[in-house]
């Protein structure tokens, strides 16, 4: 397909001016995605994945201390240079977002229907009655039982899973082209999480929107995403289609992450793989490769100069100087361990 990508992020950097100096939470992220894609952004806390998604929506603007660099192209417009009024027209209409904790994102003093109706009436010329009707329909779509009743209830009357469904309903009310989901299932139980993941995948098929799925959970990514980008210290260190990433992870960080998770099958007496050390502070980013302080393979080159994004196969990119050598060394282990 040679059509324009839905979203194109070019060398995005987000700087925060703090008392301890400038902190660069997102440090040169580039990627593009098409409608219909579900792209997973994976990283541990402090990897910059949430700041990245919030930068795309420019949700950080209210703090004066933030500064963006680069471009975020959506529908031929650079979101980073748009006026506030134009942004408001896009937010909630063409790009919407769902968050981790539905209860803090929903207003406690308005009914669900009222809040969904507000989003609809903000972007579309609809009467209150029509908006209410549409809210019922969209709630039905997200699988809430008896939506005619639920639409008049307040958030506290719904359970966590139902609240998250209501959030999703609100985000989808204007049929956005892009949905940004920031850890939407982290606060939910696994059986409810399975329901919500199924819902998002189903809506993605029905409505054909692009989904940017931010999570720390590699298992969730493997269930739902078509492609994955692994972030570490504000940068993408590896990107690949989901199956490829799990079968042949190339970056030592990705490999470490995958091996650190206790498995549901196989030997459980072997100690878990450990990535030594902790994520460095953003005020104290290591020279060269950001992962060099924790990488078992790091050498002088890694500690002094930053590796470029290197193309392993057409769709698989990795930010590592030595991935060929490392995978020759470990190659057999990683493929046998994860392929099925």
């Amino acid at each position: 397909m040679s059509k324009e990508p839905l979203l194109k992020v070019n060398n995005l950097k987000t700087h925060f001016h703090t008392e301890r100096g400038v902190v660069t939470a997102v440090n040169g992220v580039s990627f593009s995605m098409n409608s219909g894609d579900i792209i997973g952004i994976v990283g541990e806390s402090g990897s910059g994945k949430s700041v990245m998604s919030q930068s795309i929506m420019r949700l950080l603007d209210h703090t004066d201390a933030v500064e963006y660099e680069g471009e975020v192209i959506f529908e031929k417009e650079n979101l980073l240079s748009l006026s506030q009024s134009r942004l408001r027209a896009i937010r909630g209409d063409q790009i919407s977002m769902i968050f981790q904790d539905p209860l803090t994102s929903l207003s406690p003093v308005y009914t669900i229907g009222n809040q969904i109706g507000e989003a609809i009436r903000l972007h579309q010329k609809k009467s209150k009655k029509e908006a209410h009707q549409q809210a019922v329909e969209i709630l039905r779509l997200t699988g809430i039982p008896s939506p005619e009743v639920r639409v008049n209830e307040y958030p506290h009357q719904l359970s966590g899973g139902m609240q998250q469904r209501a959030m999703i309903a609100m985000a989808l009310s204007c049929e956005p082209r892009l949905l940004i989901a920031d850890e939407p299932t982290t606060a939910l139980d696994v059986t409810i999480q399975a329901q919500i993941l199924e819902l998002i995948a189903d809506l993605n098929r029905k409505m054909g929107m692009g989904v940017l799925f931010i999570t720390h959970d590699l298992g969730v990514v493997s269930e739902i995403c078509t492609g994955v980008k692994v972030m570490y210290l504000g940068q993408i260190v590896e990107e690949a289609p989901t199956d490829q990433l799990f079968q042949t992870p190339l970056h030592p960080y990705t490999q470490g992450l995958i091996q650190s998770i206790p498995k549901l099958e196989g030997d459980r007496n072997e100690p878990l793989h450990v990535i030594e050390g902790t994520v460095p502070s953003l005020t104290d980013i290591p020279q060269g490769c950001g992962f060099s302080t924790r990488c078992p393979y790091a050498d002088e080159l890694c500690r002094t100069s930053e590796p470029p994004m290197r193309i392993a196969t057409t769709e698989h990119r990795v930010k590592c100087w030595h991935y060929e050598a490392i995978n020759e060394l470990e190659g057999r282990e990683t493929t046998v361990g994860t392929s099925k």
């Binding site: 139902m162 696994v190 329901q195 993941l197 298992g219 199956d243 995958i258 099958e265």
Partner: peptide, 22 residues
Amino acid sequence: LFSAVPDFNRSRLKERIILRGE
């Protein structure tokens, strides 16, 4: 409960029991 756990080691086509309700 076990089948609801997302796990990249299992094949994607595995049979999955999704519980209805809460």
